[in-house]
Amino acid sequence: MASASIKMAHGSGGRLSNELINELFFRAFDNPILKQANDGALLTMDSKRLAFSTDSFVVNPYFFPGGSIGDLAINGTVNDIAMCGAVPRFLSAAFILEEGLPIKHLKKIVNSMADAARAAQVQIVTGDTKVVERGAADGIFINTSGIGIIQHQQQIAPQNAQAGDVVITNGYIGDHGIAILSQREGLSFETTIESDTAALHTLVASILAASANIHVLRDPTRGGIAGTLNEIAQASQVEIRLEEYAIPMRDSVRAACDLLGLDPLIVANEGKLITIVPLADSGKVLKAMQQHPLGRESAIIGRVLNQHIGKVTLETSIGSLRVVDMPLGEQLPRIC
């Protein structure tokens, strides 16, 4: 690794995160299940196929338009399990609380967790609580882990994208990241942008019902769709070519990104998934998604090619082909 100490960018889902994971964690913990490099681990126990996943939530602010850290903590882990093609069942919840956190805030967060769990039909069955001194945490950190059952026989993995496949997403991208940023920094835009946080397992169920040939399922959280698609392009050794005009995006998010100088493709989502399916099945899948309440704005946003292997590219409105890089974490302009 190039740097001597941890930088914020090591946690951004970008190139530095990947370096940390591949060069430190994977090497130290090396085992075949870990190497699947999925959102969660796929396990077989007593001939039952399970998906197991964990996630920590450190969002600031912990209340934001469209939800709270509590919703994220449930939906995030539910989604990671759902992206393994599994039906989520049981969750754990661990809290790290900062001295001084108002109890009424904690109550509100825990209640939103309970609501989200009910909505996602999962039970929180174990937990842990730690309190740290003022300043040692930022209000509240939550970790959740979860287990789900895999009931289908499909081969779904980031390694499985193939030339000829199409790339589908279930709606407007960038909502969550921009909602959080504007709430945290007190930036107000004409319309309030709300987080898209949602549990996606029922949408996944309709996708799996629509086609028996789903190749990839991922949720583009940290690092945005640029980060997720780069991982897939690398893992599958294919090119993923996006069409700029086809990517669903709210005007308000586009305007906010313009002001902030951010590429919407690297902004985090919490209620979005990417699925990659063979062209032949794409119509069925798209239709099934559009009929689901969380997929009304679903759209085909690109296709899989074997031209520029390992890269994500974007056909721009003026017809040139731009490389969509793996976000580094901190964007520093390259132009002079």
Binding site: D258, L259, L260, G261, Q331, P333, R334, I335, C336
Partner: peptide, 10 residues
């Protein structure tokens, strides 16, 4: 500062 990074360059 360059507010917006590359956007400020343009």
């Amino acid at each position: 500062k360059l507010p917006g990074g590359a956007a400020a360059i343009k």
